[in-house]
Amino acid sequence: MTLGFYPGCSLTGSSREYAESVVALCEELGIELKQIPDWNCCGATAAHNMDKELSLSLPARILALAEKDGMTEIVVPCAACYSRLSTTQYELNQDETLKAKVASIIGMPYKGSVKILNVIQMLQKYAVDKLADKIKKPFDKEVACYYGCLLVRPHEVLQFDRVEDPQTMDVLMAQVGAKPIDWAFKTECCGAGFSVSQPDIVGKLSGKIVKDAVDRGAKAIIVACPMCHSNLDMRRPAIDSYLKTKVDIPVLYVTQVIGLALGINREKLGLPRHFVPVTFA
């Protein structure tokens, strides 16, 4: 089976291990991923902070290219890209005049019919029934499933999971043998796009998240967003400085955990690229 694939910019650079683990896992599950030809950046936080029409046009170009290629479903692993693409599709489907205007800005026909899936939705839809038989080494650890903001909010647009106590990642993790803990920071913001411009705020917000996970006995934090990962992993010095202690809990992508349980090796899943070492795998 083939699905359209929008990796987004982070997954080709600072979060390439997320892309590596998505691709390795899909290969194992018999899902072929086809990149949207000539895809561009979705505009992320910067575009919608600065100009509404730009923030709708950049994702619309991506969706239009997917339509042109005949794709009906696309997988978008980055939560920020997933949010921008979904928001654009939602807003343009609510307003035909705006839809026509954006189509003229991008110079391409745009229907708004492509189904957008995050990685958890893709796994729910195409892998859940295959997982149990494929498990070679259950991921037997307490995990804090960290969803962050953009994977679940706003609900009106995404219609995905609960906005404050989501469950989908917890269910997936339990299916590969992990023990999801109950904790308070599942959907609190990590500081997201402030990683460079406001590093102290990121240290504080991400520090509270990491602390709660550790205090409640998690051995790993599981994420499905490259910004959450960068902030919790690469920004660990700022976190340690906020918490005034050194915290060594690793942060893994949901696809890396499932990949490990399925017996995929750690290099193929990009684990050596993390800043906080994953010592148990």
Partner: peptide, 11 residues
């Protein structure tokens, strides 16, 4: 400019 668009307020 500090608003992170985390969408907690509307939730």
């Amino acid at each position: 400019w500090l608003c992170l668009t985390c969408e907690m307020c509307i939730a």
